[in-house]
Design a protein around this nucleic acid. Structure first.
Lengths: 323, 323
DNA sequence: TCAAAAGTGTTATCCTTACACCCATGT
DNA sequence: ACATGGGTGTAAGGATAACACTTTTGA
């Protein structure tokens, strides 16, 4: 390796998630002067921070004023062509992280530094199926994708599957099922089809003939929306085999609150009773003995997470059934 | 960021896996002059390669003479303290990859470049439960870990769990179950306990009082064994929900061969008939009509992977039952 | 005829899904 | 009393795990 090789910089970026009521929220920073919203992030400097995670926590603290809590690495993105580097600027590689926090812990702090929480479905409106199939799919998204998939593939890269097949795999068209975990695949397909703002910004031509460009979810800075898509996908998958949901809950909660939180993340409706049995037979929670009367109807029993489960079984979670 | 910040280099490292008979094999390169075995790897240069994957494939080709096939990113490791950088040398961050190939494709090529396939359980003898609980656990490993866990935790980092609890979670001690997916957790625990060679090399003191240091699996260069542990863990987990196993199979195979391959990877024994029913009901394979008589007994029917399943269901795999 | 490996049938059990119904509070 | 949300019982269907047994080849 000669010493003139392109300078590389590592960017640490965090998708910080909390749930407020029945809305999943994302912590986004610095939308002040700039039009586009971005995630908390900063470069990794090994002199200052021994590990990525330490560096990440420092950046989050500095930019939002709060501690990140549960943190997990998602993926490392390094494509040239996304985030085109200015001449002489270093090539930036982003390591995406997912962080989970509890809403009450934080509310005020963040705002004081210019950061705030926003509902994450603003960035991915087609991912929220809690009130049935989202309209945007049939009015806008699928027609545009169908147009794209009808055109011949002019791709640089060799692809094992045709555009049609890939569309069928990601989106519910012609009877193919909805898989709530394929959040990233869907975003990547939209990017490739030139249907999200980020793709145009990165110099990809719009693939459709529409005069007015439809807004498919709110765009974000750099590759941050891609990282958020990765975060949602990972979280939706992980819910089912690890008790991560409790990282988002207060110390005590009702079963309905727990269910609403799971529904918020997974973007779909669950069967009340089966959900309760599931939680019960997995012995994930225990009653505190108290009740909450804040919800208007019959008072609900309060529960807390049984931390012991972490040591008992190999890996409990909530494999959710349908409806 | 000032321009004097530590130079960062990105290392791409691949754990390339194939199965030969009933043995899972790992492609390791350049063990010639150096004592320690290493994985194919090299630095990422964004000027030369547009994506990590392209760069990785180039390095693998150059160092082993073969094409990597199925490739998937595993994790990015950046700890200072592992791989201590020489003074003035760049800080190296490694992105680990998992690659799967078919044995027949390759055999000869690799050898001609000094690379070769080795059984992966040489590096992790405690991970192979196909012939029952491995002896090394009770003769060596668990006694040493028990000694370590009895000592008070002198850790720098704040840990939510005690040493005892972490031991119980990773290893089968005192009735706790064996979870074949926790390959990385087990390796990390051994590293932290100073029981693998890599830990001592990185300047971690041996935590036990034994005079003779027992050899707990063959060590590898740099952090390559950690990457291999990540690869095995990922592959064992992924088997169960994606049909990746077929990346390791020839175009046509018998059901017993398929079962032996799954057993090789997962490191445990499966119930023959249940395995067959599983494969059948998942409709993952179809008979070719031919038979194979190479195994000595009654001729076995040959099957091939039904590629169509990739498009039908969201995500088929082989959730293996026990025994 | 015997060893070796392929391939099949059947049952008990558990988990998932879905149905419909009762309970406790505020207004 | 009634609306609102909390909370339960139970039965049908399917997937799993574990039995032991038959079939087809080569030596």
């Amino acid at each position: 390796m000669d010493d003139t090789s392109t300078r590389i910089e590592i960017g640490l970026t965090a998708a910080i998630v909390a749930v407020e009521g029945d809305e999943p929220m994302l912590l986004a920073a610095g939308s002040g002067s700039e039009k586009l919203i971005g995630l908390p992030s900063g470069p990794f400097d090994p002199r200052e921070h021994r590990t990525f995670e330490i560096g990440l926590r420092a950046w989050v603290k500095a930019q939002t004023g709060l501690s990140a809590g549960y943190v997990e690495q998602l993926y490392t993105f390094g494509d040239r062509g996304r985030q085109v580097p200015a001449d002489g600027a270093p090539h930036v590689v982003s390591i995406g992280y997912l962080a989970l926090t509890r809403m009450p812990d934080i509310a005020g702090l963040a705002a004081s530094v210019g950061a705030g929480f926003r509902p994450w479905y603003r960035f991915f409106p087609w991912e929220d199926w809690r009130n049935g199939r989202p309209d945007i799919l049939d009015t806008t998204l699928i027609p545009l994708l169908e147009e794209w998939s009808a055109a011949p593939a002019t791709d640089e890269t060799v692809r094992p599957l045709s555009r049609r097949e890939r569309l069928r795999l990601c989106f519910p068209v012609g009877g193919s099922p909805w898989d709530e975990e394929k959040v990233l695949d869907r975003y990547e397909l939209l990017y490739e089809a030139g249907l999200v703002e980020e793709a145009l910004r990165d110099g990809r031509s719009a693939a459709n003939a529409w005069g007015e460009r439809p807004q498919l979810g709110e765009a974000m800075r750099l590759d941050h929306r891609r990282i958020l898509a990765t975060a949602i996908a990972r979280l939706r998958a992980k819910l089912k085999y690890r008790p991560v949901i409790f990282e988002l809950m207060a110390a005590e909660f009702t079963l309905t609150e727990l269910q609403l939180t799971v529904e918020a993340i997974s973007g779909r409706h669950l069967h009340k009773q089966n959900f309760r049995r599931l939680v019960e037979t997995a012995a994930l929670v225990e009653p505190t003995g108290e009740t909450s009367m804040t919800t208007g109807g019959r008072p609900a029993a309060l529960f807390r997470f049984r931390r012991e489960v972490m040591q008992e079984r190999p890996a409990p979670g909530l494999r959710l059934g349908g409806r």
